[in-house]
Design a protein around this nucleic acid. Structure first.
Lengths: 360, 360
DNA sequence: GTGAAAGCGCTAACAG
DNA sequence: CTGTTAGCGCTTTCAC
C-alpha cells in the first residue's frame, strides 16, 4: 500500500496539516519542521493522491484537448504545442479524438466524455456556425479553429484573412499574376468559415495589386486532404493550365498539389509557384520544400491554455468572451524560389486582441 | 453547484445506493426504479464526480501514454491508435511527451508526472538496455518500442527481425541484388536494439537468397530523421553509386533518401528501388509513393492497452512479464515498382469551380 | 506555527 | 431488491 499523508505525519512526528502545508508551499512552516517532513516524504516515497486532492479541491489539474484526429499532422503539432504549454503550467492534458464526426464533437460538448478534467480546449471540424448554441456548456471551454465565431466562449484562432492575404502577397511579390487557389468550399457567400475567410484574404491581395479576380482559378476541395489537393491540381491542369502560381488553403492540400505537378513534369517554382498555409513540419521536407504561412500555432497553444486556466480559476461572474488572433508570417522555401531558411523558431507572443467578435 | 448523487436520490425518492447501482449497471434493480433514477439524472443533468469515484475505488479510468514527441508522425499515429483502443475499453488517455530526452523519460518513470492515471504505456527513445532496471516501478507499466528487451514488465513491440527480412525479401523478389541499408547504429554487435535487429533481418534475407553481404552498403544514420536519411543517401551516391535498392530502417529516413535521389536525378524505382519500415500515412503520399513494411501499429496499440488494463486489474501475485510481437506485412507502392492501391477518398467536388463570391 | 476534526462525492459492506 | 453507513486521502476552517 502506498504511503498516505498520515504516514508521513507519523514518521515526521507532526500533524497532517503540517505535511499538507509543506506540500502546498504554505510559507509559515519552520525550516526545521519542513526539513523533517521532506525527509519523511523521501523515506516513504510518498506521492499525494490526486484523486483525493481533486475531490477536496474540486480541481484535477488536468485539461482536455478535443481534436478531430492526431494522425492529421496539423493536429499532432497542435497537441504537441498544447501539451508543452500545459506542462509549463503544471497541468496535464487528456487527448480526446472526435474522429472528425459530428457525433464525436457533440459527445465532447455533452460532457459525457469529460473525464477528470477541469476544462476543455475544443477544435471542431464538423460543427459549424449554426451550432454555436452548443458551445453553451457548464464547464470552462476555449474554442480553437475557424468553424464557429462569435460564440459564448473564449476563442483563439489564426488570422485567416491576414494569413491568406500574406500568402497571396508573397506570390505577387515574386512576380506571379495568375494565381490559382485550392481549397474553397461550396458554401454561402456570407458564411464565415475559414475557406471563405481565406478567399477573402486572397481577393484583398489581388485587389491591392490591381490583379483582376478570375473565378475559374478558384477551386473547390473538401476536406483539405492530400488526395483532394492532388485531384484539384489535376483538374486545374486539365482545364488548360493557365496559371503560374497556386495558393492552397492548407499544407496538406499543397503537398497533394505538389505531387500532381511533379508527376505532370511541371517545374516548381519555375512554371508554377506553390504556397500553403499551416507551416507543418512536413512542408520543410517535400521536394521541393514548400513555402507556407505560419499561422502561429505555438502562440495559439500558449494563449489557449492560459485562457482556459484563467477561466478555470475564475470566480464570480464570468468576464465576457474574448477572441484572440495569433500572429502570422510567411515561411518562404523552394516552392516559391527561396532557399530554405534555417529552421524557424518559436516567435514571441504578442497576441492581438480583437475588441469585437467579428470573424477574423 | 453541480448535482450530486444525493440530489438524484432525493429527487428519485430512493437511496444513494440505488442511484449508485443504476449508474454502475448493477443488475438487481427493479425496472421502474431504474427508470425513475434515470429520469432524475436527466432532470438534474447529474454527472458522477470522477475524483470521488477514483478516490473510493482506487482507479481513475485514465491511463498515461508517454512518447518522445507527437510531432513525429510515427508517434502521432501510435497515439491515435492507443486512444482509439482505450476508448473502446472506456478508458481515457493522458499524453505525456518526454521530449526524447533522457531526463524526460526518467521523470516519467519516477512517477512524479503520473497524474491521475492507473498505469502507463511507455515508449522510450533514449533509455536503453542498460537502463532496464529503471523499469521496475510501483505502478502498472507496459513497455513499447525496441530500445529495451527482457525487462520486468509486459512488452509489446513490432517484429524487428521479421519485418526487416520481409523488406529485404521484397527487394530481392523484384530482382535487386545490391541492396543498401540506411539506419544502422554504431553499437556493439551483440546489442539487441532495433537497428541491430533490423540488420539481422536484412542479413537473413540476403543469406537465404545467396547474396553476399557487403558491409560497404550498410550505412549508419542516427537518429532516424529525414535529414539523416538524406545525408546517408548523399554519402552512398558519393561513394560510387553501386547499389540498385535501399532499405531504410524507418520511413522518415526513406523520405529523406527519396528526396536526395530526386534531387540527384536518379529514377525511383528504375535505378534504385526504395522501401521503408513503419508504414506511416505519409509514405503513401511521397513522390513516388514509398513502399514500406507495416509493423502492425494498430495491433500493437490494441494489445498494449489490453495488457495494461489487465495488469491494472490484476490481483494477487503478478503474472510473469510477457512479450508480444505484432504481425507485419509489406505495403508495396511505387518506389518498388508497384501501382498504388486506390486511395480512399471522400471528395465533395461537384462544382469544381467555385461560384463568384460577390465583391471582395 | 501547528493540531484536531469536518467533509468533498462516491462505493461497498452489511443489514433488512 | 433497497437503505444505512463507514471511510477512501486530502484540504481547510478553527482553535490553540
Amino acid at each position: 500500500m502506498a504511503a498516505t499523508m498520515h504516514d508521513v505525519a507519523r514518521v515526521a512526528g507532526v500533524s497532517v496539516k503540517t505535511v499538507s502545508n509543506v506540500i502546498n508551499d504554505y510559507p509559515y512552516v519552520r525550516a526545521t519542521t519542513r526539513e523533517r517532513v521532506l525527509l519523511a516524504i523521501a523515506e516513504l516515497e510518498y506521492r499525494p493522491n490526486l484523486s483525493a486532492r481533486g475531490l477536496r479541491s474540486g480541481k484535477t489539474g488536468v485539461i482536455g484537448l478535443a481534436i478531430p484526429e492526431l494522425r492529421q499532422n496539423y493536429f499532432a503539432e497542435l497537441a504537441d504545442a498544447v501539451i508543452r504549454a500545459a506542462e509549463r503550467r503544471n497541468v496535464a492534458v487528456l487527448v480526446d479524438q472526435t474522429g472528425a464526426t459530428r457525433e464525436g464533437e457533440m459527445a465532447v460538448l455533452s460532457g459525457d466524455r469529460l473525464r477528470l478534467t477541469d476544462g476543455l480546449l475544443f477544435s471542431p471540424e464538423q460543427l459549424g456556425q449554426e451550432d454555436v448554441g452548443l458551445l453553451q456548456v457548464p464547464f470552462p471551454l476555449v474554442l480553437l479553429g475557424e468553424r464557429i465565431f462569435g460564440g459564448p466562449t473564449d476563442h483563439v484562432t489564426m488570422h485567416n484573412v491576414g494569413s491568406a492575404r500574406a500568402a497571396t502577397e508573397h506570390l505577387i511579390e515574386i512576380g506571379r499574376r495568375r494565381i490559382a487557389v485550392i481549397g474553397a468550399h461550396p458554401t454561402h457567400p456570407d458564411d464565415i468559415r475559414s475557406a471563405n475567410l481565406r478567399v477573402r484574404g486572397y481577393r484583398e491581395a489581388l485587389d491591392a495589386a490591381g490583379i483582376p479576380y478570375d473565378p475559374a482559378l478558384v477551386r473547390v476541395a473538401a476536406p483539405w486532404h492530400r488526395e483532394n489537393g492532388a485531384a484539384a491540381m489535376r483538374d486545374l491542369l486539365a482545364d488548360g493550365f493557365e496559371f503560374d502560381a497556386v495558393f492552397t488553403f492548407n499544407d496538406t492540400l499543397g503537398l497533394g498539389a505538389l505531387r500532381t505537378l511533379g508527376q505532370a513534369g511541371i517545374r516548381v517554382p519555375e512554371d508554377v509557384a506553390v504556397i500553403g498555409l499551416d507551416n507543418i513540419d512536413e512542408a520543410r521536407f517535400s521536394v521541393p520544400s514548400m513555402s507556407s504561412v505560419d499561422p502561429g500555432r505555438d502562440q495559439i497553444a500558449e494563449v489557449a491554455v492560459d485562457l482556459l486556466i484563467e477561466r478555470i480559476n475564475e470566480k464570480g461572474d464570468p468576464a465576457p468572451p474574448r477572441q484572440i488572433l495569433a500572429d502570422y508570417r510567411v515561411a518562404a522555401r523552394e516552392s516559391t524560389g527561396f532557399v530554405d531558411p534555417v529552421p524557424a523558431l518559436a516567435t514571441a507572443v504578442s497576441p492581438s486582441v480583437l475588441a469585437d467578435q467579428g470573424p477574423a
